[in-house]
């Protein structure tokens, strides 16, 4: 079983901020430094997402409550068959991100993607979105059932590089990752956004997932603890990466790859700065 993702640069666009590849439209997008692009999470059923407002940012943090808005697996696969994502496959490796409202939906969505797995370098499962009332983060509340799901998904996809995207709110993250490893999963993405609350300029309360530079120390600690417990699992570090130094630190504490999320909202050229830095440091 594969233990590493073979990426030209260990830099991955996180699921969510990059949508379904819309950034490809921007003139001069730095593809040279994108090791893989993770699509927005696709769930079994279409999701319209949460009612607005959905985002607000201040100082070193932002909050989002998108709620996994996506077309659902059937419409997504139709688009895939119609070649709507070919532009992205031509540019870089693509990671598919999947989710569902419950155990059965995770299994069903897995079965549906089987004929298309050759298009993706890996499949990431979202077990940590804090912005949905069903599925996402709630999947890890019953650890016995969750591990049973991990085992069943592995049986369905025996040869796929499987990644569990995990947050810090379902117990000690290193324990969750251990269960993924025991279930034969290849990697983990740590961490996701953390539940937070902000008031926007209109005085409206946003209950959502917190991201931004202030997440970095939390992500670093999570990566550190996971690597301390599990020496072989492939770790994609995610959370608060905005500068070259952030990536350096995450790699130093045990990450195999660095994920860029909300930082692309500031300027997608962050990818080239961090990617260049990672490549130069890997040579040393």
């Amino acid at each position: 079983m594969l233990s590493k993702l073979n990426l030209k640069v260990p830099l991955i666009i996180a699921s969510g901020p990059g949508g379904f590849g819309e950034y490809a439209k921007i003139d001069g997008f730095p593809w040279k430094y994108v090791g893989a692009y993770t699509l927005k999470t696709v769930t079994y059923n279409k999701k319209s997402g949460n009612v607005p407002p959905r985002m607000y940012a201040r100082d070193g943090y932002m909050i989002n409550r998108i709620g996994l808005e996506n077309p659902g697996i059937d419409q997504f696969l139709d688009a895939l068959e119609n070649g709507e994502y070919e532009f992205l496959f031509k540019k870089t490796n693509v990671i598919l991100s999947l989710g569902g409202d419950n155990y059965q939906e995770y299994i069903e969505v897995t079965k549906k993607v089987k004929p298309y797995l050759h298009k993706f370098i890996a499949v990431e499962y979202n077990f940590s979105c804090p912005n949905v009332s069903k599925g996402g983060l709630s999947m890890v509340t019953d650890l016995i059932e969750w591990q049973s799901l991990l085992v069943e998904i592995r049986k369905e996809l025996p040869d796929t590089f499987l990644i569990a995207k995990l947050g810090i709110e379902g117990g000690f993250i290193e324990n969750l990752v251990e269960k993924a490893a025991q279930s034969g999963w290849n990697g983990v993405t740590v961490i996701n956004t953390i539940r937070g609350l902000m008031f926007n300029d209109d005085g409206e309360i946003l209950l959502g997932g917190l991201s931004g530079p202030n997440l970095l120390p939390i992500a670093e600690r999570a990566v550190y603890e996971v690597r301390k417990k599990l020496s072989d699992i492939y770790i994609i570090s995610s959370g608060g990466v905005y500068k070259e130094e952030d990536a350096k630190q995450l790699l130093k504490v045990g990450a195999d790859a660095v994920s860029i999320g909300s930082a692309i909202f500031q300027d997608e050229q962050i990818i080239s700065r961090i990617g260049k830095y990672i490549l130069e440091n890997l040579k040393k």
Partner: peptide, 21 residues
């Protein structure tokens, strides 16, 4: 409405309409 990307990727600038989001 507060925007993350401005290009249709992030879905943050949602507005409720009679025809859905």
């Amino acid at each position: 409405e507060y925007m993350g990307c401005g290009i249709g990727a992030c879905k943050s600038c949602a507005v409720m309409t009679k025809n859905g989001i």
